Amino acid sequence: MTAEQLAQQLYEAPAAAAPDGDRPYAAALLSRLGPDAPGFQERLGRALADAERLLRACTRDASDHRVGALTGHLAATGGKRMRPLLVLLAAEFGDPGSEGVARAAVVAELVHLASLYHDDVVDRAATRHGAPTANAVWGNRMAARGGNWLLARAARMSADLVPEALALNARTANRIVAGQLRELIGPGPGEDDLAHYFRVTAGKTAALLAMSLGVGAWQSRASRAVADSLVEYGEQLGIAFQIADDLLDLLSPEASSGKEQGRDLLVGVPSLPVLLAREGTDACDAELRELLAAGPAAGAGWHRRALDLFAVSRATVRAQTLMHQRLARARAALGALPPLPARRTLDALCDFVALRTG
């Protein structure tokens, strides 16, 4: 089976591929690797299950059960568990049985979950994964502090990782916060909007995927060359992943994505298709610019009309082209890695990102 065929199967798999609703993308991926990788999917499946149990225990570990309900809220709703999967796939290039690999996988997911708590507060989001967000249940102040608790928990757990993984985790935390601040502050004087978008994306999204791969490589004692290649792959995949999310926000109904369609438009997030539409020269983009500038003042149907226009806009096509360019760079980074089943899986993830928006 080719990587493209594998990705097509993943794309067509049910959202809740795992019986308990956990790690749907990871479970769907591993269940379709086939007999040409003996022992691989079983080993990864056990490692993911171990990481999931540790994650649930970590997010519930609070002296007050009310705090545990808050900090464990998003973990309990499920999720893709892509970051733990990336940690475990990277560990395949070293010794996957090395002590602390599962802990590294949980650290990556804790940082990710913390960023979701904070993002949902900033975006005033009401749902995630089809369930109410923490801020919708407990309010913004409590949700923000829940995210802080998860970051503190991640820092505590990462203290036992190997020095290289610990240092990468620390640098990534700084990059994520810097990316969030850049997003809130906006472009600087004379800064190009697209350049600002990619700086924000590198910090908010790509940094964490790169960290997941890097800590998996370091914790499993893989070589520096392997770790560097995996980090570069993660950087490029992360930017492509964010572009895909931007496109899905505009193109995918809530029933499919679990998130309110066009939420970024409603809260004024300058996603890549929006930025490209502002630069567009055709009639469709001209109408989009007017709608985006006026917002609700354009009338009750402005949001639906904007979504309809993005579905046929050249800005959407340009965003897809930029996404594919990043995916090509990610694949190029894989070229330096040995031809292990994990490399095939990482290559298939590129196809999967592309198919999500196809």
Rank of each mutant, 00 (worst) to 15 (best):
G280D: 00
L54D: 07
T345W: 04
E164N: 03
G301T: 13
A27I: 08
A62K: 08
G262P: 14
A277Y: 01
G258W: 03
R56M: 11
Y11D: 04
Q261A: 10
A170N: 13
E52L: 10
L213H: 01
A126G: 13
G39Y: 11
T172E: 05
G301D: 15
L247D: 00
Q325A: 15
W138Q: 11
P132I: 07
R23N: 12
L288C: 02
L88C: 09
L346A: 09
L33N: 11
Q325I: 12
L266F: 09
P296G: 02
A283T: 02
G146F: 13
G214E: 00
V106G: 06
R171S: 15
A105E: 07
G72L: 13
D119Y: 11
V226R: 03
M142Y: 11
G45A: 07
E290W: 00
P24G: 10
V215I: 15
A165P: 06
Y11I: 04
A202H: 12
M82S: 01
H118M: 11
T71V: 12
Y25F: 11
A244Q: 03
G299A: 04
L181K: 04
D246F: 07
P270M: 07
L230I: 04
L213M: 03
T205W: 01
T357K: 00
A330E: 08
V269F: 10
E109V: 07
F310Q: 00
P273Y: 02
R318V: 09
T316G: 00
A51R: 07
P163I: 05
Q5V: 14
A225K: 02
G358D: 00
D61Y: 09
L74H: 15
R60Q: 14
L292M: 09
R171L: 13
D282F: 00
A16E: 11
P35H: 07
E4H: 10
L54M: 15
A91G: 10
H129L: 12
A75V: 05
F241V: 04
D95F: 10
S63R: 14
L251H: 00
T59A: 14
A283P: 02
S271G: 11
R60V: 04
A37M: 10
A286V: 03
R175F: 06
A125L: 14
A222V: 05
L250F: 01
L55W: 02
L327P: 14
M211E: 06
Y233P: 03
F310H: 00
Q261K: 14
G335E: 13
G45V: 08
A7E: 05
Q325P: 08
S98P: 14
T71H: 13
G216H: 01
L116G: 10
V215W: 01
P338Y: 12
E287Q: 06
A255C: 08
T172H: 03
P339D: 15
Q41C: 11
P84C: 08
R344L: 07
G186N: 02
N174R: 08
A136G: 13
D61H: 14
D308I: 05
E99C: 13
P187M: 00
P14N: 09
L48Y: 09
G203H: 07
V101L: 15
R60L: 15
R43W: 11
V87F: 03
C58H: 07
M211L: 12
L70I: 15
S98K: 15
R199D: 10
A27Q: 15
A47S: 15
H196R: 06
D160N: 09
D119P: 15
A15I: 06
A255N: 07
G299C: 05
